[in-house]
Simulated assay, not measured.
Amino acid sequence: MINEEIQQEIERLRQPDILNLEQVKRFAVWLDERRKLRKPGRAVGESGLGKTTASLFYTYQNRVAKTPNQNPTVPVLYVELTGSSCSPSLFFKTIIETLKFKAKGGNENQLRERSWYLIKQCKVELLIIDEAHRLQFKTLPDVRDLFDKVKIVPVLVGTSSRLDTLISKDEQVAGRFASYFSFEKLLGANFRKTVKIWEQQILRLPETSNLADNQEIITLLQEKTDGQIRLLDQILRDAAVKALESGVNKIDKSVLENIEGDYSLVAS
């Protein structure tokens, strides 16, 4: 490969990809069931297991429909909460701005009414609330009321321990979001299968690395990622870039060892 081609490949490897993996497919089926049954729920799992990626993939599959001179139809609205503590006002502002309208000023009640109005106008059926463990306790009734007052299905997505701890403080919220989907770590044959998929569909190097068939490499990757798909993605992409920069067309153990040492999970 010439230098320009190598740089193009490196740039490609630095762009995010969303693969329709088995867990992503199962999550989509579960979300479809929530919409059909008109029942809220929560999706939980440790950090790095693909909750956000799966949520974005489902949202993309149910993309916005635009009609001239009318509000867009948004069957699935995905919002990501930021900051350490999401108040009711911030929650409603996030909804309004994600729908690409200006939040403007106003007190909490005005923002609530405006967000409810826009949700109805945009015909939102399902609201995915990512990083839901960031919600303040006093925001929970507003999340619960979305189903009662606006007739949409809210789904909370967040880190297992923090989200479950939060909603357990309100028995009405806990009961409403009792249905859950659990994101699991990559283990055993599933880990090996995912490495193979990543090599074929994400890395796509000039030569086959056969990473999934090398037990030493699989063991090394398992130890460094602890089954987290996000870390696996980062390590394999970095290794692919390192290989190309070094004039190598595939990943071998020496390239991976040179990369994986830069990653270390903090002990809990």
Rank of each mutant, 00 (worst) to 15 (best):
G106P: 00
T219P: 13
V266W: 11
N107L: 05
R204S: 07
D130F: 02
P40C: 04
D238M: 07
S87Q: 13
I6R: 10
N190W: 07
Q121V: 12
E125K: 15
L111Q: 07
K242S: 11
Q8T: 14
Q200M: 11
E9S: 00
N210L: 15
S115C: 07
K100Q: 13
F191R: 01
L19N: 05
K149T: 00
A240R: 00
Q234R: 14
K120Q: 13
K169R: 11
R26A: 09
N3Q: 14
D262M: 13
W116E: 13
K193G: 04
Q7T: 09
I218P: 02
E9N: 05
R134L: 00
T94N: 12
R144E: 10
D17I: 15
P40N: 08
G188L: 06
R237H: 06
S87M: 03
R204C: 06
N62M: 02
E33A: 06
N249P: 07
D142H: 13
I2T: 15
V155I: 12
L49Y: 12
R14A: 02
N210C: 13
V255S: 06
T194Q: 03
R230I: 06
K149E: 09
L126Y: 01
V124H: 01
L21G: 12
L146G: 00
R35W: 14
I10T: 04
S168D: 10
A267M: 13
N210M: 14
P40E: 01
D233N: 14
D238S: 03
V74A: 10
K193N: 08
